[in-house]
């Protein structure tokens, strides 16, 4: 096929063709470098707080001291980079406001992760286990557990994560049903928010907030818009926003430089690939 008389257009066409068929490993290396360098040499970028995260913060911030909130650990190590910073930031916020926490979860390997965040925050704010926070641990059968919690939390959770009877935990003497809880925040990487919304929210009227992995976030915006979620935090970006709101930048804020640069590079790849594709297709009709 002829592409004109000059040599230059032929070379350009070659480059464009190569771009449309670039070895994916080159892209992996570029992304790896773009992520690795800011992780090693982080620069703190300004964080703009989005309304869903602000609503989550405000709802917790407005609670009177002594209120009890549920922090559900419905994620596991695969989502730890995204949700652990959010759990730690909210635990810090909750304890700084004199609120109390009931932690529980429906994904077993997540319980120690949430427990670690609670212990760090509790130590910082001199909070005592059993009085200011409890960890009821993992429970299978989420639907049934939530339905039972609407009437008596002690039934599905007779003992805590450490196998201590809930009777021996002073905080639990004030928490018998979901009516005794001011609100719940679900830290989720799966379908657990559907259950919290349907059972704790719609059935028992508990206010539910959500900290979700990035993959899930867009799926739950309709619930935020409808008011079924009072706040919504999405992925590492949302975690960094919450860290900014409590004035304690952590691993999410540190990761946002790498995140932003990686996004810019991916956007550049998409734009270049599309331009190349359309130019090559125009030059090779029928291809």
């Amino acid at each position: 096929m002829e592409y004109g008389t000059a040599q230059e257009p032929r070379q350009k066409q070659g480059i464009l063709e190569r771009l449309t068929a670039i070895d994916r490993r080159i892209i992996f290396v570029i992304i790896g470098v773009v992520v690795a360098v800011p992780v090693l040499y982080p620069i703190t970028l300004p964080v703009l707080v989005s309304p869903p995260v602000q609503d989550l913060y405000d709802a917790i911030d407005e609670l009177p001291p002594g209120s009890v909130i549920i922090m559900a650990i419905d994620f596991d190590p695969t989502s730890e980079p995204e949700l652990y910073p959010a759990y730690l930031a909210i635990a810090r916020h909750v304890f700084s406001k004199g609120l109390r926490v009931v932690a529980l979860g429906y994904i077993a390997p997540g319980i120690p992760i949430g427990e670690r965040a609670l212990q760090i925050a509790a130590e910082e704010y001199d909070k005592e286990y059993g009085v200011d926070y409890v960890n009821l641990g993992y429970k299978t059968g989420m639907t049934v557990a939530l339905l039972m919690m609407g009437k008596e939390i002690w039934d599905p959770y007779p003992r805590d994560h450490y196998d201590t009877s809930v009777e021996e935990l002073p905080l639990m003497h004030e928490v018998h049903r979901l009516d005794d809880v001011a609100l719940a925040v679900d830290f989720a990487h799966g379908v657990s928010p559907d259950y919290w919304i349907a059972y704790a929210g719609a059935r028992f009227g508990l206010r539910v907030g959500l900290c979700a992995t990035g993959v899930m976030t867009s799926q739950y915006y309709p619930y935020y818009d409808s008011g079924q979620l009072f706040g919504l935090l999405g992925g590492l970006k949302g975690s960094s926003e919450y860290e900014a709101l409590i004035g304690a930048p952590g691993s999410a804020t540190a990761g946002m430089t790498a995140q932003s640069l990686a996004h810019l590079v991916i956007m550049a790849f998409i734009i270049v690939a599309n331009i190349s594709y359309f130019i090559v297709r125009r030059r090779s009709p029928g291809a």
């Binding site: 730890e80 995204e82 993959v215 992925g235 990761g255």
Partner: peptide
């Protein structure tokens, strides 16, 4: 959001 989530996991590993 999926791209963001996957990059977040890579950041966590790094």
């Amino acid at each position: 959001y999926t791209v963001m989530a996957r990059i977040s996991l890579l950041i966590g590993r790094f």
